Amino acid sequence: MGITGASGSIYGYTLVRALHQLGVETHVIATEMGEKVMQFECGIGMKELKEYATIHSNQNLFASIASGSYLTDGMVIVPCSMNTLGSIANGVGDTLLSRSASVILKEKRNFIIVPREAPFNLIHLRNMTRLAESGACIMPASPGFYHKPTEIWELANFMVARILDMLGIDHRLLERWGEKA
């Protein structure tokens, strides 16, 4: 899992906690700005995330997850900045985050990118198209409102539930459309 400097760290933090609660082994890579934005928006640092996941330095290209021989179910980058998205879309693998993403793409594993940007410019859209054509799922942080959320954590859970669904991970984060409580 990657966490970058885009706003929306609550989604990343909520996903890490949900994966931990579901018993899913999770590895986290945060960019320098990802760490700063998470601290600013959520008051959470990498020290706190160690409780839920294995944390990797973005500069450690020798980490296990930088190799295709290390088996994973997939990768999620949430939130994903346009800088990181552009680097991955253009094959730049100079950090552990971008290298791990490249590995996920070449191994044809689940790869979900959750951009939290608006509006998109043409370069953003072309980079997203390039990633989608390479097998990535582009899932903008656009929570629904049909479940009538009244608190911010309900919006975060909505997006995290969608991410877990795309990864094929069973959960009960929210009531599904048509289900009765």
Rank of each mutant, 00 (worst) to 15 (best):
M128G: 09
F145A: 13
A6R: 01
S57D: 13
G23E: 09
G74A: 10
Q59F: 10
I152G: 02
C42S: 10
Y146V: 00
S69N: 04
S100K: 01
S134H: 06
F111G: 07
G45A: 08
V92L: 15
I169Q: 14
G2A: 07
G91C: 11
L131E: 10
N60M: 14
A101N: 03
R126D: 15
W177E: 10
V92C: 12
S134K: 07
S57N: 09
I44L: 08
I113G: 03
E117N: 00
I113W: 05
M128H: 08
E107D: 05
E35V: 12
A6P: 00
L61G: 10
N110Q: 15
G34K: 09
H124M: 11
K148N: 11
I152M: 15
N121W: 01
G93P: 00
Q59Y: 08
R116Q: 10
G74Q: 03
C42K: 07
R99F: 05
I44W: 04
E175D: 14
S98F: 07
R176H: 11
F40N: 06
I44F: 04
P143K: 10
S7L: 08
V160D: 07
G68L: 09
S102G: 15
V37Q: 03
L22G: 12
A89D: 10
L97G: 03
R162K: 15
I112T: 02
G5N: 03
D73K: 14
R109S: 11
I104T: 12
A6G: 12
N157E: 09
I55V: 13
